[in-house]
Design a protein around this nucleic acid. Structure first.
Length: 797
DNA sequence: TCTGGAGCGCTTTTT
DNA sequence: GCGCTCCAGA
């Protein structure tokens, strides 16, 4: 008997090892690691997602069997013989019986919760799960944090005093509401700019601070306590509107689980295994959520990499990963350091770059892929030329290496950078797909339609009611709207309810007719809401409200495009209807508010991907272009004041580099148009941080007049990238300015009495003087007026 | 109540 | 370069 057990356990492990033999030993350890908390410290490209997918596949098929010492009931010698035979010669005919013999209480798909951050990552995970375990993967909860929370809230939010028809407010809605609150409190919008207030409130919510708690903590700070009062009002308004912002979705789910024992127990029991990807990017609220859910089974797997923490701005705290072992004393930690994605050259460049960060745990990635091509660096004269370079290289690679469009990604720091690249790709006829950016659901006309539908689902939504009550124009002006709102506030009702009884109010006498007409139209539509399919209902709304007509009638240049966007919206609703299990209008609205780039899944994929580095996180591409490698672009000018933020930018750079499997192109523009106008740009410090031995400078800049030409001994760094040239080519086309006084051009070297020597980044003629932006060698970038600052130009030539 | 024009300040990154 | 706000005028 004893012998049988030993034989069984040995052969079981060997079969499992064999089945997962494509994984390395560390990865297998992670996959087979049984119950209990597990921390996987996974470097970029170390097969993190593969481990998650395989771990889930293992759990579904075998349960936690690898370390299990029990024998299956009624195991016979014959069974063990079969297993041993199968190990030597895996005959598919016996596969099922073998699984049966090996498995130990397989886990059901619906008992697994896998959480990611971005939609893109969630979709990727879902697809790979379906590819690995088949259709049963659809029952796995593989969602973003917000997606998972929305699911839980739809079910039980009534316990918190909201109704199930709650609306999800996006950032634009949030901003409008905050603006209103700021005004209501008689605070000056200049002193309390929306985006600042928004971020303070967001950070408070990330920490699960209620308005009261936040006010308490902000007591000693006048400004913060004012913001606390905005927060308080904002939250009241949200609740009155039966609306949740993104942060509320997490916060309220935590609240729901903390306050309702039965709900908590339900999910704690349900989710036997919880896996959380990108754990380094979780904030406190998300940490609390995961902890609560995992409390009972304690089968929590978190995966993370401190070098890839790039969401500090959103309240992410690295402590969550650092303290994991403390929180779960029995936790097991596995480090994955072997990289399967990139070539050694790419890895070395990434390692060298991230080494410049002080605050990190330290980790060295290695790979068995030796060598690799050098990283190609290109200097473009401006952002459009950068796009042209990328387009040319893509076509070149397609021809030379037989690559498909889908093998390429163009990454950039900020969405605004995409347009020049798009133009170039379009002109070259390259199919591309833009991820994120100006999101479809943020377009005015789309948002208007969504607002109509929103009010029709959730009558309490004053914010959206105000948006559409006079769109198209119905003669209901601001004054009337203000009166309705005031009446609503004073009677603690919503504006829609006031409209219902507008006949009773003396103040509304003049606009009564118009208000009633609007109200009865909305009521008529509301009555039809549940009788029609969502897409049909939406078209009905469009025609009945006159909105579609209104859009078409605007025969502006973008009228067609707007109409088309609305058509797309209708198509999306239809598409949702066909795919959702139980389609409903609210269901659609939820998807619309969360899934920003959802239409991406269902395409054939023959396109180049254009996306920000943030949204490229967790993805990989054979060939990566990293555009805009310039100071003030990347690192972003917003981050340059603060060393901590520079480190975050550097981690972002690390993420970007490590997306590439085979080849990496870095490009930068000597001149770039931003909203500040055309400006000269310096190459990014991150380029300088990469050892030149890994770089292949594609266009050796011609010998140029740099600092040296201006009289200073050659101080230019040895790295050839730093031989920037006066980027005057773009400006030189202009007429020569009249010869009075000194002329300034971008790229000129100038001397200032106090600041020393510098290079002109931007020059604008203003009156008789010049407004200059100058990068001084010692003191950094300054804006000055030329005459006032008494600049001199050392004579060159 | 609606429209148009001037003026200003702004966007980093995601859900 | 854009979008928002403010203000004047119909």
């Amino acid at each position: 008997m004893e012998e049988l057990k030993e034989r069984y356990l040995r052969v079981k492990k060997r079969i499992l090892d064999q089945e997962f033999s494509r994984m390395n030993a560390r990865q297998r350890e992670a996959i087979f690691s049984g119950r209990g908390p597990l921390l996987i410290l996974a470097g970029a490209g170390s097969g993190k997602t593969t481990v998650i997918v395989n771990r889930i596949a293992y759990l579904l098929k075998y349960g936690d069997t690898y370390h299990c010492e029990e024998l299956p009931f009624g195991l016979t010698e014959f069974d063990v013989d079969l297993l041993e035979e199968y190990l030597q010669n895996p005959n598919p005919a016996f596969a099922e019986r073998v699984s049966e013999l090996i498995a130990n209480r397989p886990v059901s798909p619906w008992s697994i919760l896998a959480i990611t951050f971005t939609n893109k990552a969630a979709n990727e995970l879902k697809e790979r799960l379906i590819g690995t375990v088949g259709e049963s993967a659809n029952d796995i909860w593989a969602n973003t944090f917000h997606g998972a929370c929305a699911k839980m809230l739809r079910r039980d939010i009534e316990r918190l005093g909201y109704t199930r028809d709650f609306t999800v407010y996006d950032t634009d809605d949030q901003k409008r509401l905050i603006k209103e609150c700021t005004k209501m409190l008689n605070l000056n919008e200049k002193n309390y700019p929306v985006y600042q207030v928004l971020s303070v409130i967001g950070r408070a919510k990330d920490k699960l601070l209620s308005p009261g708690e936040f006010a308490e903590s902000a007591k000693s700070d006048y400004r913060l306590s004012k913001i606390a009062s905005i927060y308080k009002l904002y939250q009241q308004r949200l609740e009155a509107a039966n609306a949740l912002d993104f942060d509320d979705m997490i916060r309220l789910t935590v609240k729901l689980l903390a306050e309702c024992d039965d709900v908590r127990e339900y999910y704690q029991k349900k989710f036997q295994y919880i896996l959380c990807d990108e754990y380094q990017d979780t904030n406190y609220a998300q940490y609390a959520l995961v902890s609560l859910l995992a409390e009972q089974h304690r089968n929590l797997t978190v995966v993370g990499d401190d070098d890839q923490s790039i969401y500090k701005f959103r309240g992410a705290t690295i402590e969550n990963i650092l303290s994991f072992e403390e929180q779960y004393k029995e936790a097991k930690t596995i480090r994955l350091e072997q990289n399967y994605r990139s070539t050694q050259v790419i890895l070395d460049a990434a390692n060298q770059t991230i080494k410049h960060n002080v605050g990190r745990k330290g980790k060295t990635l290695w790979t068995e892929n030796p060598g690799g091509e050098k990283i190609k660096v290109f200097k473009a004269k401006d952002e459009y030329a950068e796009g042209v370079f990328i387009a040319e290289k893509i076509l070149d690679e397609v021809v030379r290496y037989g690559k498909n469009y889908r093998d390429f990604a163009v990454l950039y720091r900020a969405n605004a950078q995409s347009s020049a690249i798009e133009t170039a790709l379009q002109r070259s006829g390259i199919a591309y797909k833009l991820f994120g950016g100006y999101k479809f659901y943020e377009r005015k006309e789309v948002k208007d339609v969504i607002s109509y539908l929103g009010v029709l689902c959730n009558r309490q939504d004053d914010l959206r009611l105000k948006r559409i009550i006079n769109e198209p124009k119905r003669g209901i002006g601001d004054t009337t709207v203000d009166v309705v709102e005031a009446l609503a506030v004073s009677s603690s009702r919503c504006m829609y309810d006031v409209l219902a009884e507008c006949g009773e109010y003396e103040q509304l006498a003049r606009s009564r007719e118009k208000l009633t007409a609007f109200y009865s139209m909305m009521e008529e539509l509301r009555a039809k809401r549940d009788l029609m399919a969502p897409s049909l209902f939406a078209s009905e709304v469009l025609s009945r409200t006159g909105y579609m007509e209104f859009i078409i009638a605007q025969d502006k240049a973008d009228g067609r495009e707007r109409a088309q966007n609305i058509e797309t919206l209708l198509a999306n609703i239809q598409n949702y209807e066909e795919n959702a299990e139980a389609p409903s209008l609210t269901g659609f609205m939820e998807e619309a508010s969360l899934a920003t780039d959802w239409e991406t899944q269902s395409e054939d994929g023959q396109y180049v991907s254009l996306l920000t580095i943030h949204s490229a996180k967790g993805l990989e591409f054979p060939v990566v272009f990293l555009a805009g490698m310039e100071e003030e672009v990347f690192p972003s000018s917003m981050a340059m004041q603060n060393p901590d933020e520079i480190e975050e930018e550097r981690r972002l750079c690390y993420v970007a580099i490590t997306r590439a499997k085979q080849r990496l192109y870095l490009s930068y523009a000597a001149n770039r148009r931003t909203y500040q106008g055309l400006r000269m740009h310096f190459p990014s410090r991150f380029l300088k941080e990469m050892p030149t031995e890994y770089l292949d400078i594609l266009n050796q800049p011609e010998p140029v007049h740099t600092y040296a030409a201006a009289g200073t001994a050659a101080k230019a760094p040895k790295n050839p990238i730093y031989n920037y040239r006066a980027g005057s080519s773009l400006l030189s086309g202009k007429k020569a300015p009249e010869p009075t006084g000194e002329e300034y051009r971008v790229g000129d070297t100038v001397q200032h009495a106090a600041f020393g020597q510098g290079v002109v980044l931007m020059a604008k003629k203003m009156g008789g003087d010049w407004m200059l932006e100058i990068a001084f060698e010692k003191t950094g970038t300054k804006k000055l007026m030329a005459n006032y600052a008494k600049l001199t130009k050392p004579q060159a030539n």
